[in-house]
Amino acid sequence: MISAALHGFILAFGLILPLGVQNVFIFNQGALQSRWINVLPVVLTASICDTFLISLAVFGVSAVVLGITWIKMALLLGGILFLLYMGYSTWKSKPSDEKTTGEKFSPQKQIMFAASVSLLNPHAIMDTIGVIGTSSLSYSGSAKITFMIVCILVSWVWFFALSIVGRWVGNIDQSGRFILLLNKLSALIMWGTALYLLFSF
């Protein structure tokens, strides 16, 4: 039980820590929204999506999904197109515009956008279904459940913390220069990820 919990914590933290599309989106929303509570739809949606993917992975769907070639190809192609579009939108966006647009975003729109960032992100899918799903095969019974719950908890805590740090940065950086720089960096990361997936495809 303890070894499964420790394994789940280290694995989930290692997978979720890098600056990816999902993390950047949550951080940006935290920095751009006028109040932290306005970021909750994004944080909750990303957390629920991760919970869904991790649960599917641990309960054995990973073997089915990764074993069917056309599903894997479809996920990769969809993810590449999504990352290219997201990179373009992020590169062109300006902090002042995003603040105005962000205030007008309904919770429904935030939920849809966060869900697309989470569920159409090939790295998130491959990390959860591929890595976590495969790692869970070494456990059974209560140890397997413990492993899954710890992975899910790490995801929830990380997304909440990321949004809080984003809000803090947004309060300090009133000029919006840091967010503009972050947008450019985020776009490059998205395009780089898309190119990597394209070459691997």
Results as ranks from 00 to 15, higher is better:
Ile145Ser: 13
Val150Lys: 05
Val154Asp: 08
Asn183Pro: 15
Ser186Asp: 07
Pro18Leu: 07
Ser186His: 01
Ile48Lys: 11
Leu6Glu: 08
Leu53Tyr: 15
Gly60Phe: 11
Ile132Pro: 02
Phe25Leu: 13
Asn183Met: 07
Leu162Gln: 09
Trp36Leu: 12
Leu77Ala: 14
Pro41Ile: 01
Val65Asn: 08
Ile129Ala: 06
Gly130Asp: 02
Phe201Cys: 01
Val154Glu: 04
Phe9Gly: 09
Leu197Ser: 11
Leu17Trp: 06
Phe27Lys: 02
Trp70Gln: 09
Lys92Trp: 07
Ile54Gln: 04
Leu81Lys: 02
Phe147Pro: 05
Leu6Tyr: 08
Ile80Ala: 13
Leu120Ile: 03
Ser34Asp: 02
Ser106Glu: 00
Ile48Asn: 11
Lys72His: 11
Leu181Arg: 10
Thr146Ile: 14
Gly20Pro: 06
Gly166Lys: 09
Thr45Ser: 13
Ile164Val: 13
Asp97His: 11
Asp127Trp: 08
Met148Ile: 02
Leu182Arg: 00
Leu6Ile: 12
Ser118Gly: 04
Ser3Ala: 09
Val58Gly: 12
Thr69Asn: 12
Lys104Asp: 02
Ser135His: 10
Ala4Gln: 07
Phe201Glu: 07
Ala115Tyr: 05
Leu198Val: 09
Phe13Leu: 15
Leu185Gln: 02
Tyr139Asp: 02
Ile71Ala: 05
Val131Trp: 09
Val21Gly: 13
Asn38Met: 08
Val61Ala: 15
Ile149Val: 14
Val24Lys: 06
Ile164Glu: 03
Phe178Gln: 01
Leu83Asp: 09
Ser55Asn: 11
Thr101Glu: 02
Arg177Lys: 12
Ile26Ala: 15
Phe27Cys: 02
Ile164Asp: 08
Val24Arg: 06
Leu153Glu: 03
Ala161Tyr: 03
Val165Asn: 04
Gly20Cys: 05
Tyr139Ile: 04
Leu76His: 06
Leu198Trp: 15
Ala187Val: 04
Thr128Gly: 05
Leu120Ala: 00
Met112Ile: 04
Ala31Tyr: 02
Arg35Phe: 01
Val169Tyr: 01
Val43Asp: 01
Phe113Glu: 02
Val117Asp: 00
Glu98Pro: 00
Met148Ser: 01
Ile145Cys: 09
Leu137Ser: 14
Asp127Lys: 07
Phe201Gln: 03
Val43Tyr: 12
Phe178Gly: 04
Phe113Val: 14
Lys144Asp: 00
Phe13His: 05
Gly67Leu: 06
Phe52Asp: 07
Trp168Gly: 06
Val43Ser: 07
Ser186Glu: 07
Phe82Gly: 05
Gln29Arg: 13
Ile189His: 00
Gln108Asn: 05
Ile132Trp: 10
Ser136Thr: 04
Met73Asn: 13
Tyr139Lys: 10
Met86Cys: 09
Asp97Ser: 10
Val39Ile: 09
Ala187Thr: 08
Asn171Ser: 11
Ser106Ala: 12
Ala124Asp: 12
Ser138Gly: 07
Trp70Leu: 14
Ile145Arg: 13
Ser62Ala: 15
Gly79Val: 14
Ile48Tyr: 08
Pro41Phe: 00
Met148Pro: 15
Gly176Asn: 07
Ala114Tyr: 10
Lys104Ala: 05
Ser96Thr: 06
Val58Met: 08
Val64Gly: 00
Leu120Asn: 01
Ala63Ser: 15
Ala114Pro: 03
Gln29Ala: 11
Ile149Trp: 06
